[in-house]
Simulated assay, not measured.
Amino acid sequence: MPGCQASLSPSVPLFGAYFPSWLICLAGGIIGAVVLRVLFIRIGLDEVLPLRLLVYACLAAAIGLLLALTLYGR
């Protein structure tokens, strides 16, 4: 099974367990979206955003995908 080799599997060892890389990128995207929300509230942009939930969900997805692309090349 060549797909199960350690060099091909996108997993990261943390705290004695292997976490999939997409889980790390997901957490990074959520944290990035929260930081951007705080920034948007401080500059007053949050009040004028239409569909805030959709905007922040798309920001989290974009940040997560950028992390996956830059860190893991996938």
Rank of each mutant, 00 (worst) to 15 (best):
residue 39 L to H: 08
residue 56 Y to C: 01
residue 12 V to I: 15
residue 67 L to P: 01
residue 30 I to N: 06
residue 64 G to C: 06
residue 44 G to P: 11
residue 39 L to Y: 06
residue 26 L to K: 00
residue 59 L to H: 05
residue 62 A to P: 00
residue 54 L to Q: 06
residue 51 L to E: 14
residue 5 Q to N: 09
residue 31 I to E: 07
residue 43 I to S: 11
residue 67 L to A: 07
residue 45 L to W: 11
residue 12 V to R: 11
residue 53 L to F: 09
residue 35 V to R: 10
residue 29 G to M: 02
residue 47 E to T: 10
residue 54 L to M: 08
residue 66 L to Y: 01
residue 10 P to F: 11
residue 9 S to F: 12
residue 56 Y to D: 02
residue 46 D to H: 12
residue 25 C to I: 03
residue 59 L to D: 00
residue 7 S to E: 14
residue 11 S to T: 12
residue 70 T to N: 04
residue 67 L to N: 04
residue 38 V to Y: 03
residue 42 R to I: 09
residue 12 V to E: 13
residue 68 A to C: 10
residue 71 L to S: 07
residue 23 L to D: 06
residue 26 L to E: 00
residue 40 F to R: 08
residue 65 L to V: 04
residue 73 G to W: 07
residue 34 V to W: 09
residue 1 M to I: 12
residue 21 S to E: 07
residue 7 S to A: 15
residue 26 L to D: 02
residue 74 R to E: 07
residue 6 A to L: 11
residue 4 C to L: 13
residue 25 C to M: 03
residue 62 A to T: 14
residue 60 A to L: 03
residue 44 G to S: 13
residue 8 L to E: 13
residue 14 L to D: 08
residue 38 V to H: 08
residue 47 E to Q: 14
residue 35 V to S: 06
residue 48 V to L: 10
residue 56 Y to M: 06
residue 50 P to I: 12
residue 74 R to Y: 08
residue 31 I to F: 07
residue 52 R to V: 11
residue 70 T to F: 03
residue 11 S to H: 12
residue 44 G to Y: 02
residue 71 L to H: 00
residue 17 A to I: 14
residue 58 C to L: 15
residue 26 L to N: 01
residue 21 S to W: 08
residue 26 L to C: 01
residue 32 G to Y: 02
residue 45 L to Y: 10
residue 38 V to G: 11
residue 10 P to N: 13
residue 59 L to F: 03
residue 36 L to G: 04
residue 17 A to N: 12
residue 74 R to Q: 08
residue 4 C to A: 11
residue 53 L to I: 14
residue 43 I to V: 15
residue 38 V to K: 12
residue 4 C to W: 10
residue 70 T to S: 04
residue 10 P to C: 07
residue 56 Y to A: 06
